[in-house]
């Protein structure tokens, strides 16, 4: 995608009479970001990186330079930390399962909504499906905790009605993470759906007509027209969601606090907890590692998606 944009931009640059003035005006356009980044993000990011090489704690906030340099000790400690290793593993499992689940649900919903159903029901379904994404996590947590209550929860009541003894969903080490995964997919697919819908509506009807003339069936049209045309939207959703999912934290924080026995502790949640208990240097190191992984992942995705 980056490549096509660049190619397009390069063509534009050749075609325009005053290429030099473009840089000047461009910087005016990007000024809002440059200013906000320089003022509010650049410094704090460097502080975050810097403190990962020190033994800084919450007690040093008044005198942040009065700390000892410890080199890579925080980073080395990460690898010995059982909970951190578990958090990394949980995050991997979470991303690898939630990402395709969310994309698949989002795509299915978008295609169904775009398959020529009437406007009013379409709007109604769209609203319903998008609702979880825009709802405050506080509300979601309250609702889901009650749904999954082992005794009084509707889920287990329903299971009991068909003779199944429902488990204690969030207190079970093997079930807690899958529950969080399903809940996150439920919460997130509406976002992908909206992006896909916009992209689907942008596909010219003539393409489908041409394919139909060539004798392409329903599946072939989807495979050879829809999917290729959705490529930018798919890339966007994949990159954006994997960045978001790799940082997942809210769901386990409100549902399980990372338990039972760390079964739902994510990398971000572990970092959050380390900050919360004042261990700034160590938390900074963990955050730096997480950031590096996310950046590498995004880079890889851009690379793989580059048109050959």
């Amino acid at each position: 995608m980056v490549a096509t944009v660049e190619a397009r931009a390069a063509r534009a640059a050749v075609a325009t009479p005053r290429p030099l003035r473009r840089t000047g005006i461009a910087w005016v356009f990007v000024a809002p970001f440059v200013v906000v980044f320089a003022v509010f993000w650049a410094g704090p990011l460097l502080v975050g990186l810097g403190m990962s090489f020190t033994d800084m704690r919450s007690t040093d906030v008044r005198n942040p330079l009065g700390v000892d340099l410890v080199g890579l000790r925080n980073y080395l400690r990460l690898f010995d930390d059982e909970l951190m290793r578990k958090a990394a593993f949980n995050t991997l499992v979470f991303v690898v399962t939630t990402l395709p689940l969310t994309l698949g649900l989002g795509l299915a919903a978008a295609v169904a909504l775009n398959s020529g159903i009437a406007r009013l029901p379409a709007a109604f379904f769209r609203l319903g499906y998008y609702l979880p994404y825009i709802t405050s996590i506080i509300g979601i947590a309250v609702a889901w905790r009650f749904l999954l209550d082992p005794e009084a929860g509707p889920v287990n009541q329903l299971l009991a009605a068909v003779g199944v003894d429902g488990p204690s969903w969030l207190a079970d080490e093997t079930l807690a993470l899958p529950v969080i995964i399903v809940m996150t997919a439920w919460r997130s697919f509406g976002f992908d759906m909206v992006i896909f819908l916009a992209a689907l509506q942008g596909i010219p009807k003539e393409l489908y007509e041409a394919a139909e003339v060539d004798g392409a069936g329903r599946w072939e049209r989807f495979r050879w027209v829809t999917l290729p045309m959705l490529r930018p939207a798919l890339l966007f959703c994949t990159v954006y969601s994997s960045i978001g999912f790799t940082q997942f934290m809210e769901e386990p924080l409100v549902m399980t606090k990372g338990g039972p026995a760390g079964a739902t502790t994510s990398a971000s949640l572990a970092i959050y907890n380390q900050f919360g208990s004042g261990n700034f240097g160590y938390a900074g190191a963990a955050a730096t590692v997480l950031f590096t992984v996310i950046a590498a992942l995004a880079f890889l995705q851009f690379r793989l998606a580059r048109p050959r």
């Binding site: 905790r145 999954l148 969030l170 207190a171």
Partner: peptide
Amino acid sequence: ATDQPTGA
């Protein structure tokens, strides 16, 4: 018990 949910 260890299998009770938070809030039970």
